[in-house]
């Protein structure tokens, strides 16, 4: 196979993405289809919610929190561990399901803009994770005796950035896993190490929010998460085309 020069392709992709169609038209069609399938099957969201809550319960029993603001770092840690490990099971389902039923080839052959396809998969995974996170935060409040107050609301930016970054990473890795032997094993092996910078930042930002620290205490961590999100969303947008390719 003749190697294709990647750098010029990436450059051209940014400057002149395929504009024969409005890219958002393909985005809307794929997202609508994925949400319809999820509403009927519910596999991704159910797996995410069930596993998140299960992990959270195990963490609560293991850590035996006393409750209140003193346990903010423990609560934040438990929340993020639950989100990440459950996310590995559910966030990548939209891509893996396309591979399972072979429809990924139909999408590859279609005129869909590959960047729009990645964004649609990312949006679907993010929506599934939002539902799961909402359930986990509710459980967190109950298990850790937290109050429904402004501190929870201040945690939202960290959660939103965290789930977008993780959904982007999971979508990207799901596309990679389809190209390699034993790719299913690749997800957990790569996802957590690659996500560590955002994970640490997310835990720190969430702990600061739950502990009532000022916004300035969260700022540096949120900036790390924004950088992580920009990196992986951009990487997915640009590289998704090449990851769908078959040898």
């Amino acid at each position: 196979m003749r190697a294709r020069p990647i750098a010029p392709i990436i450059f051209l992709r940014i400057l002149a993405p395929e504009r024969a169609d409005p890219p958002m038209a393909g985005f809307a069609a794929v997202l609508r289809k994925d949400l319809t399938l999820e509403l009927r099957g519910g596999e991704s969201t159910l797996a995410l919610v069930a596993l998140s809550i299960l992990i959270l319960i195990v963490m609560v029993f293991a850590l035996d929190p006393a409750g209140g603001a003193a346990d903010a770092p423990i609560a934040a840690g438990a929340l993020w561990v639950a989100m990440i490990f459950a996310g590995m099971a559910g966030a990548a389902r939209t891509v893996l399901a396309e591979r399972d039923n072979g429809c990924i080839r139909a999408l590859y052959l279609s005129p869909l803009d590959r960047g729009a396809l990645f964004l649609a998969k990312l949006a679907a995974a993010s929506i599934f994770m939002i539902v799961a996170e909402a359930a986990v935060v509710l459980m967190l409040v109950l298990f850790f005796n937290l109050d429904f107050d402004l501190r929870l609301a201040r945690m939202l930016p960290a959660l939103a950035l965290g789930l977008i970054g993780f959904a982007a990473l999971a979508t990207l890795l799901a596309a990679i896993s389809g190209r390699v032997h034993a790719g299913d094993l690749l997800m957990p092996l790569l996802a957590v190490p690659m996500y560590v910078p955002a994970l640490i930042a997310g835990v720190k930002a969430s702990a600061a929010a739950l502990g009532g620290a000022p916004w300035s205490a969260m700022g540096q961590w949120l900036r790390i998460m924004i950088a992580f999100d920009v990196l992986f969303v951009a990487a997915g947008f640009i590289l998704f085309e090449h990851l769908l390719d078959e040898d």
């Binding site: 169609d21 429809c103 080839r105 005129p111």
Partner: peptide, 15 residues
Amino acid sequence: AAARRRLGMLTHQSY
């Protein structure tokens, strides 16, 4: 993309 729109494919998998 414009050329991909002009292609139709039928395989063992129904897509």
